[in-house]
Design a protein around this nucleic acid. Sequence first.
DNA 1: TAGATTGTTAATCGATTAACAATC
DNA 2: TAGATTGTTAATCGATTAACAATC
Lengths: 212, 212
Amino acid sequence: MAIQNKVSLPVIKRLPKYYRYLTNLSAEGREKISSSELAHMMGTTASQVRQDFNCFGGFGQQGIGYKVDVLRGEIGKLLFGDGERLSTILIGAGHLGSAVSSFISRDTNGYRLIGVFDINPALFDKEICGVPIHPLHELESFCAEYHPEVAVLCVPRQSAIDVAGSLVSYGIKGFWNFSHYDLSVEYPDITVENVHLGDSLMSLGYRLRNQE
Amino acid sequence: MAIQNKVSLPVIKRLPKYYRYLTNLSAEGREKISSSELAHMMGTTASQVRQDFNCFGGFGQQGIGYKVDVLRGEIGKLLFGDGERLSTILIGAGHLGSAVSSFISRDTNGYRLIGVFDINPALFDKEICGVPIHPLHELESFCAEYHPEVAVLCVPRQSAIDVAGSLVSYGIKGFWNFSHYDLSVEYPDITVENVHLGDSLMSLGYRLRNQE
DNA sequence: TAGATTGTTAATCGATTAACAATC
DNA sequence: TAGATTGTTAATCGATTAACAATC
C-alpha cells in the first residue's frame, strides 16, 4: 500500500506507545476503548489519536469506539509485518552492547540477534543472549554468509566510522546507532535510528538548570 | 534571563549535538566557522543554525562567522550552567543500569553519581562506577541525607511506578527514565527525559518493513 | 430516534526555511 | 568599497487541534 509512504515520523514514533498501552488494556481484559480515553491515559489528545490511526485507514467503529484487540492487531501488523523477524548483528559487546542485546533478543520487538562482534579478545569465547561473540575481522565473511538486515552499533565514534561503510557495502539496510557518528549524513539512503544517550542526558540537564 | 523560557524543545535537543561538533572542531584547531559550513557538517540548514543560536542572543560576528571556542563556550554554559554537577542516583543496577551509569559518571555530561539502589541482595556488596550499591529500602534515608536532584530509572515498569512517587516526595527534580512508566502523565511538574529503547527499536522496524 | 464516537475536513499553531537588511 | 555572513523578519511548511458530518 502506498498509503504508508505518507506516514510522518512523529506518527511512526508514536506507534510503539499505542501498541504498549493496547497490550496493557488487552491484558486487563478491556474490550473496547474510545479515542478520548486512550488519549487521556497516554497524555495526548483524542484528535491526535484518531488522526494517527486514520493514516492507516479506519480501525474503529463510528459511534462505538475501537476494539482493543483489533486495534492492537492492526498496529502490530504495521510494526511487525507478517511476524518475520529482522536478522540483526551487534557491533560492540561492552556494557552498553550487552544491555542493548536483551532488547534485540526480546521476542516482542521483532528482531533476531544472529551475531555479535567485538575487538576485545577476552570476549571471544563468551556469548551474549546465547549468541557467540566473534572477532570483528570475521564480520565480512559472516555477512556474506548470513546477510543480516540490521546492525546495532555500540562502539565509539571512530570505530563506528570504520565499520559503518563496510556494513553498508555488505548490504545492511538499517542501523540502531548508539555511537556519535552521524551515519545519516554519509549514508542518506540507509534507515537509521539514533539513540544518543549522552545527548539525552545533556538536554535533560539544560532543562533542569534553565527552568523558570 | 527570561529569554530561555521561550526556547522550544526541538532547539534544546539540538544543543548537545552543536556542542559535540564544536568540541570536535576545537580539537582540530579550527578557529572560525560559518553557519552554512556547520549546518552542512551536521546535516541541517544554515537558517536553522542561526535561528537556533539567536534564541540565546548573538553568538557570532556579522560578515565573519562564529568563533568556535566562543560558540562552544556559550553553548557549554547553557548546558552545564556554572559547572556545578547535578547530583544523581541510579535505581536499578542490572545490565542497563550498569551501562547507563557510565554516562552519568562521564565527567563531560554534567552529572555526579552519588548513589545506586537495587533490590537484588547479590549486588549489595558490589559497586558501580565507584559508588556502592544500596538496598532499595535505604532510599528514603539516603535522600533525606543527600538530597539528590536527579533519579535515573533502570527498572521495570511496575518498580518504576512504585518508586517514582516516593522519589518525587523526596524532592527529586528530574528523571532520566528508561522504564515504560509514563511519569509525565502522573507528575506533570517534574522534568522527565524518556529513553524507551524498545519503542525506538520498534519504530526502526516499522520504517524498515514499510519503506518505499 | 437520541447519544456517542468515529472519520475527515478545516483552522490553528509552531517549527523550519527563505529572504534580506545590518554590519564586519 | 565589495564580499561575506550574521541577525532577524517574513513566508512556508507540516503537525496538532478543533469542528462537524457520517454513522453505529
